[in-house]
Design a protein around this nucleic acid. Structure first.
Lengths: 203, 203
DNA sequence: TCGTATATTGACTATATAGTCGAAATGACT
DNA sequence: AGTCATTTCGACTATATAGTCAATATACGA
């Protein structure tokens, strides 16, 4: 009698579920782009997402879990943005330069993403830590090659990240001049005391 | 019959009032050093200050007003830190260098202050704007003297502020090496492409 | 059309936080 | 000791937010 295909059922559920979950995730993303996670409320989220309160709890255990999911999505966007460079470029300074530029260009083209990055930088998550780890690896390699005058990796990382974040804030507050990413990169390389990478694209 | 000196009364009141107000202000300062203003609660503040709830509202209309008062106090500490340099040094790059170094040294010696500065940088207040205005004045002067290779004042300001804030975060997270302020300053001057100021203290 | 697994809803209870206010305490002065 | 302007207190009411759950809707397969 009526053998029901449980697997199929679950799949259907998963599809519908994914759609609503994405709505909530998007609403959470927008809200987290404009306020710190401590300022989020479940009522605010469900209103922004256009779903009922119970639905939120059906998909997420708590606001923290939602924030973590948004963080994971942001982490994915980092990988998507940076992985190509990591594979193609063997020169650590070139990798770093490419990544830095991609970041600022993305910030210009996608302000919500930029706001989210800036907000996330307040309380470092697993994903922003990953970025820093990659950066430090590149910097260490460059230092080992004797190509940076800054010898302290942590300081070097703070210089790169500090300029990147603050320039992002500048892009968000004032309107972005398109020349900014290049100029900012030049400044970063000067700050690190970087010897020219092979491409020689700087002044 | 008992002519009461109202002015004296008011003065007495003001003294007692000032003491309790300072307690609340200090509690607010500590809390704002560790969380964004949106995450503050009146209950949390009065508990930290060791006063009753009504007392808070006797001194402040709202949490925003308390946050503004903390911001003003922070602004005063900026002036105290920076005014001497502004009066004594006529060279804009020397002024900027002095201010930058004072900031980082203060961050090392007073972590609560540093946390407060970092937190405040999220949502620029009247007082952090003042800092940026001073900085931009110095940078403009230096650019006009043809002593910086960075020509865009906003970008230059972002570079200085970005490095300063991120190095502060680094100081707070890791333990501060005392050589950091000097090294960071060197990096900033290189980033700006600054010609040597007269003292020539850099590498 | 009906049955069923899954997803969605919104009303409901808990609790936390905001903001008020009359009563009590304080302390300089007589 | 008594007076009184001022400050402090904490109980109280409002409201907002968290978190639950029984009822309902959905949509596919039989």
């Amino acid at each position: 009698m009526a053998k029901v295909d449980m697997a199929r059922r679950a799949e259907i559920g998963r599809e519908k579920r994914a759609k609503t979950r994405a709505q909530i995730l998007d609403a959470g993303t927008m809200l987290l782009a404009e306020r710190p996670p401590e300022a989020l409320t479940v009522d605010g989220i469900v209103e922004a997402a256009g779903v009922a309160k119970g639905t939120f709890y059906y998909h997420f255990q708590s606001i923290e879990e939602l924030a973590a999911a948004v963080g994971a999505k942001l982490g994915d966007s980092f990988d998507e943005l940076l992985t190509p460079a990591r594979l193609e470029l063997s020169d650590p300074i070139a990798r770093l330069s490419f990544a830095f530029t991609r970041f600022l260009e993305k910030a210009i083209s996608d302000p919500i993403w930029a706001r989210l990055v800036v907000q996330s930088s307040r309380a470092p998550t697993e994903f922003t830590r990953g970025i820093r780890a990659h950066l430090k690896a590149d910097l260490t390699e460059a230092i080992d090659q004797g190509r940076l005058s800054v010898q302290d990796v942590e300081l070097a990382a703070d210089i790169v990240i500090g300029i990147c974040l603050q320039v992002m804030r500048g892009i968000l507050e004032r309107r972005a001049a398109s020349g900014v990413p290049g100029q900012a990169l030049d400044a970063v390389l000067r700050a690190l005391g970087a010897s020219q990478p092979c491409d020689g694209s700087r002044a």
